[in-house]
Amino acid sequence: MSIIMGRVGAAAAIVAMFLLSSCGLNSEKKPVMAESSHTRGEQCDRALGFFSKELGIPTVDIEYESEAPYEEIGLGAHCTVTQTDLAIGQTRLRAMLPNESEPALLKGDLSYIPQSGYDEKVWIKTTASAVNIATKVDGWQGTLTINTAQIKTGESKFKISDQQIRSASQFLISLTKELGAEG
């Protein structure tokens, strides 16, 4: 009788271990990259609106290249804003890899300066010809490039203000949050 109880106890222990591991209680949880079901068109429409309304840039358009506006963002997508066929800006959204702690383009580039005063992490790199902004929101990275040297606003050269850079940073945070997988 004790042999039978021993076998039943061993079988019960094996079943219990199986149930615990299948429920995830005994296994290590691995991060999973989630895809976005939002479309490139949504991303590009928002970028176009930002460049025309917030930055006040006339006659802007979107260049889709070989991808269609109805295609899903999936694990990542980009959108190029043009003015008279010149690329004046770009947004990129990408699911971060499980081992990434910050946007990939920041690695080894010390010219990106961390910013404060935002709900999410923001880094900015300013050059004579462009402003580059990066953010990290809920496992997604967003980047925004404004090619200031390419932008035409009439007779004068386009100058971006500190307030416009702040507005661009807020726009990028919202874009990444709303169109990332959790959005």
Rank of each mutant, 00 (worst) to 15 (best):
I3D: 14
I3E: 13
I4V: 13
I4K: 11
R7G: 07
A11L: 13
A13H: 13
A13M: 15
A13C: 15
V15N: 09
A16I: 08
A16G: 06
F18A: 13
F18M: 11
S21L: 05
S21T: 07
G24I: 05
G24F: 09
N26M: 15
N26A: 15
S27C: 10
E28N: 11
E28F: 11
K30S: 11
K30G: 09
K30T: 12
P31N: 08
V32N: 14
M33Y: 04
M33P: 04
M33R: 13
A34C: 09
E35M: 14
H38D: 04
R40Y: 08
G41R: 02
G41I: 06
C44P: 03
C44K: 03
C44A: 09
D45A: 13
R46G: 03
A47I: 02
L48N: 07
G49Y: 08
S52R: 09
S52L: 07
E54L: 08
L55N: 02
G56R: 04
G56V: 07
T59Q: 15
D61V: 04
I62P: 01
E63S: 14
E65K: 09
E65M: 10
E65S: 12
S66C: 09
E67V: 11
E67M: 12
A68I: 08
A68E: 13
Y70N: 15
E71V: 03
I73A: 00
I73P: 00
G76D: 02
A77V: 00
C79D: 07
I88G: 00
G89S: 05
T91L: 06
L93P: 01
A95V: 01
L97Y: 12
L97N: 13
L97C: 05
P98Y: 01
E100F: 01
S101T: 14
S101P: 03
P103M: 01
L105F: 09
L106A: 01
K107G: 04
D109Q: 04
L110V: 10
S111F: 14
Y112M: 02
P114V: 02
P114R: 04
Q115R: 10
S116R: 12
S116H: 09
D119S: 10
D119R: 08
D119T: 06
K121G: 06
V122E: 00
W123L: 05
W123S: 02
T126F: 05
T126D: 12
V131W: 01
V131S: 04
N132D: 08
A134C: 00
T135W: 03
V137S: 02
D138A: 09
D138V: 02
D138P: 03
G142E: 06
T143A: 07
T145H: 05
T145Q: 11
I146H: 00
Q150R: 11
Q150Y: 03
Q150D: 08
I151L: 08
I151S: 02
I151K: 06
K152G: 03
K152A: 05
S156W: 08
F158K: 05
F158P: 04
K159G: 06
S161G: 10
D162S: 15
Q163G: 06
Q164S: 06
Q164D: 04
R166G: 08
S169Q: 09
S169M: 10
L172T: 02
L172G: 01
I173G: 01
I173Y: 05
L175Y: 03
T176H: 00
E178Q: 14
L179V: 01
A181S: 15
A181N: 10
A181E: 13
